[in-house]
Design a protein around this nucleic acid. Sequence first.
DNA 1: TTAACCGCTGAACGAGTGTTTAACATCCGC
DNA 2: GCGGATGTTAAACACTCGTTCAGCGGTTAA
Lengths: 196, 196
Amino acid sequence: MGGMSASRRMGTENTETRQRLIELTERLMMEEGYAAVGIRRVAREADVAPALVLYYFRTLDDLFIAVLRRGAEEELARQRAIADDADPLRALWGLAGRRGAARITEEFMALGNHRKAIRAEITAQAERYRRAQLESLTRAQDEGRLDLHGATPMAAVVISTALSRVLVMEEEMGLTCGHEETRTLVEDLLTRMGPA
Amino acid sequence: MGGMSASRRMGTENTETRQRLIELTERLMMEEGYAAVGIRRVAREADVAPALVLYYFRTLDDLFIAVLRRGAEEELARQRAIADDADPLRALWGLAGRRGAARITEEFMALGNHRKAIRAEITAQAERYRRAQLESLTRAQDEGRLDLHGATPMAAVVISTALSRVLVMEEEMGLTCGHEETRTLVEDLLTRMGPA
DNA sequence: TTAACCGCTGAACGAGTGTTTAACATCCGC
DNA sequence: GCGGATGTTAAACACTCGTTCAGCGGTTAA
């Protein structure tokens, strides 16, 4: 055909198969790491020809980005919801500490470290998260459900998400040294900062 | 020879080449990630036959573990040294926040997530670190160079290393949202806990 | 001088990878 | 019933990878 040379026939957005491939890739990343994900591997797992994966995602990076975007929407909704929680900071701590979330975040960070297209997407999503979390805590503070004792809401966001994530990551590796003392301290802080 | 079947001829410990391969692998992990490391890739980089890498390291995992062990000794020495620092907690914060250290730790964690031989080695080393750090802070506390305001030294170790590491990792990705507020808060805490 | 050892290599095996191209099968609108 | 779009595939290209094995050239010790 006389069109642009960069065009190859591609699948539509909302196919069931396309969705299946995304979910399957996400699972694979969590269970075996991003290095285990490949066109052929995903295709084999989905019981489908390798070419079909490229039919829906043109390139491997596109597949990764699709996985990233899909998770981002759900996650953002969860983070907006904590604004209405009775104890928003504790809710935030809990959100960042889910195994699944921590695991896939770790994989994407490692992946992003040497694939700039993906890195850009990650930072963009992460900044959306952070803004939503900040807004949640700020509102909670205004409404008296949160007393940070002088710390800024932004610092609370960064510290609680970072720390919570590291703890579950370490625990999943079997490294629990010092966690008990840390969790005790955090629990104490959360209580002091929570609603009266 | 009538020996055990599992024996293959192998190189000695303290060769110059062996050392070169280890250093080169470490650099490769930091610059391109663990996924870029492979027998052939390392060999090509060192301008050496692939078989030679296996001559020194029998398997790829052995190579990774050699890299891990080499770095561990240096790192442990550094962590013991902070016991004599005038402001040990700030020194600990600085140690965990070196780009190189954070970067290679991240790669090893991702690697360890689905290679149990390596995971075991990582957790073993990490626990050695933590014990050394704990001892440093405890001594500093006894000698009045540190006032944790009721927090345990162990919690201080876990929190400061985890947080410092996450911050540099994020910054290296280009995600700096909220870091300024966080660093301000940490700086304030470090000052309040430091020597009088 | 001979024998053992040591650092190192070339070639090969079997399997994995991303990507392209042409084509088959099935549906839907006309 | 026909034409075109859509979902899907097999086959091939041109790599990469880990691992094994036999063997080279040089040093060292008997």
